[in-house]
Structure formats: structure tokens, C-alpha cells
Nucleic acid binder design. Structure first.
Lengths: 152, 152
DNA sequence: AAAAAGTTGCAAGCTGTTCTCAATACGCTA
DNA sequence: TAGCGTATTGAGAACAGCTTGCAACTTTTT
């Protein structure tokens, strides 16, 4: 029976993506990406939150590295960056099956509702195609005033 | 013939909006809003840019006041705040006829193309209506990779 | 005209993010 | 599998954008 080491581990998409670029696989990068993979693709974390979640589970990764890694993972299209928030950008796992985020945001109280609309998805696809862009993700932000805030 | 002072000037929307709220019309507020009215509704300025434009035209308004005024004008829905930028939020005159901004953005090089799509506008309207929100503006951001960046 | 309330400018402070740089870890090659 | 070149890390300083505290000033009210 062959020893476990005789199997060659299949390199993860992260690892092969990095390799291709002369970059290296590090425990820190693995930890950041696994954190996002662990929580799934609907949830957005700030850099600070990533930092404290890792710290709480005993993994020490410096904040500077978190910022560097988040930027890298966005560029590699593992993560998606959401700009729509107060107090720091947020990141989430980029799901290629479900690449859309439509938000209705109250500009007064910040309440946010999510919805999804096929026409919007299609509009993004068409625009990308017309200009020869490769679509990653489209996000619609509707700025509005919610019923509770409208009268004050 | 009556003296000019016998005419009562019709208070501007800004002034009456402020009055309603126990707030006051000040030269600073007027200057900031006129600046935006002067340049029209397609152009977005950062707080810093507003500051230097006013300074260049000889109007001294402190940066702190600019920030306070921009926040106020957004709340009063004279201006619209765009969160989608690097290096500071940007503001533009909120045009109620044309409240839409659709962008196709290359995540590698930052190139941005604008487009407009009726279905997207409608989707925002429908979502707002369903939840009882009052629509201000909807913006679609399509994150993608442009032809020049796709192979590297 | 005095009091009350809103606004401004300045400077200090805060927050999120990036940078600098020495120390360290990765991964290739021998 | 030891050694080497280079990518990466951590820590803290630096930075940019923005907000706040406060004293002076301006308007409005009485």
C-alpha cells in the first residue's frame, strides 16, 4: 500500500492561479480564502472582520497581510469587492453561478433590501458583450428612501 | 414705480427647504449648490474638488464646511452621492429626469464605460415600489475584464 | 438690543488603508 | 534535501478622507 505521500495532491485553484503568476501559496492566503469558502457566498466581510475572525480562531495574520490578500483575491476573481458600504469596503466569495447583487438602499437609515431581476442581469451581459468585456459580476444599487424615513 | 426692495424675492428651493427645517441659508451653502448647478448633472466631484474649485474662483469655504454641506445637500436630495469610486466619494447634482447611471468597469485597469438600459431603470422602480421606498437613483455597476486586460 | 439658535473655520482626532523595511518562508535547482 | 533567490510577512509609521469640538460669528427671534 503506497504511503500517503506518494499521492500528488491536486493543486487548488488558488494555488495554480498563484503559481501561474510567479506568486506563492502561503498559509495566510489559504486561511483568508478558506474563511470565505467556509461561510459561503452571500455574506460580506470587512477587512477588519476577516482579521478578527481569523484571530479568534487562533490564526494570526496581520492586518496588512489581510488587506494585501484581499486585494489579490479580488484581482484573481476569487472574491468580489462591494463598495456600497459605510465604514470600509466589504468582500464576499464570488459565486460564478449567481453573479448578481441587487440592493435597494435607504440613504437615510442605511436599511438594505436585496432583490434579483433577470432583466438587470441580461442588461449587464449585453453591455459586456457589446464592448468585448468578460463579465464577472453585476450589481444594481437603488438609492431610495424607505417608508420609515420618508416623513422625517 | 416701486423700489427694487418692494419686490419680495421668491425663495429658492434650497432656501425654503432649509427654512422648513429650522436651518439657515448661508453664502457657503449657496456657493456649493451653485457650483453643482453650474456644471450640470452628469459630472461628479469629490469634496476636495469642490473645495479647490471654490477656492480657485475666489470663494473661501473651509473643507469642513464643504463636507457638512455636501451631507446636507444629499439629505435634502439636491445632490446625489456616488460610492463607486476610489479615493473618496463623489457627488453630483441629482437630476430627477435622468436618475440613472450604468457603468461597465474593468477591474484590472479601471477603464469605465457608461451605458443606459430601460429595463434596469424599470427594475429599480419596481423594487422600490414593492417595498414602499421612494426611488432616488439607481446605478448598475458591471464588473468585468476589458479586452485589453483579458490576456494578462 | 439682547438672547437664542444655527453656522463657520480651525485644528485635533479618527478610521480605513497603504507603505516601508527587516526578517522569514517558499519553491526551484543542484 | 541543502542552498539560494525572491516573494511574502508583520509591525508600525504614514496617509487620505472625513468628522468633531469649540470659540467666534451671524442670523433670527423676542
Amino acid at each position: 500500500m503506497p504511503s500517503p505521500n506518494s499521492y500528488r495532491t491536486h493543486p487548488s485553484p488558488l494555488e495554480s492561479g498563484l503559481r501561474q503568476d510567479g506568486k506563492r501559496m502561503t498559509p495566510q492566503r489559504k486561511k483568508v480564502l478558506s474563511l470565505f469558502e467556509g461561510i459561503g457566498s452571500g455574506i460580506h466581510l470587512s477587512a477588519e472582520e476577516v482579521h478578527s475572525k481569523l484571530t479568534n480562531s487562533g490564526d494570526k495574520v496581520s492586518l496588512a497581510t489581510i488587506y494585501r490578500t484581499l486585494r489579490l483575491l479580488v484581482k484573481m476573481t476569487f472574491l468580489n469587492e462591494l463598495d456600497l458600504s459605510e465604514g470600509g469596503n466589504r468582500f464576499e466569495l464570488l459565486s460564478h453561478d449567481h453573479p448578481d447583487h441587487h440592493h435597494l438602499i435607504c440613504i437615510r437609515c442605511g436599511r438594505t433590501e436585496e432583490f434579483e431581476n433577470k432583466d438587470v442581469i441580461k442588461a449587464g451581459e449585453v453591455a459586456a458583450k457589446n464592448l468585448g468585456f468578460k463579465l464577472l459580476e453585476s450589481s444594481l444599487n437603488v438609492r431610495a428612501i424607505c417608508p420609515l424615513c420618508i416623513n422625517k
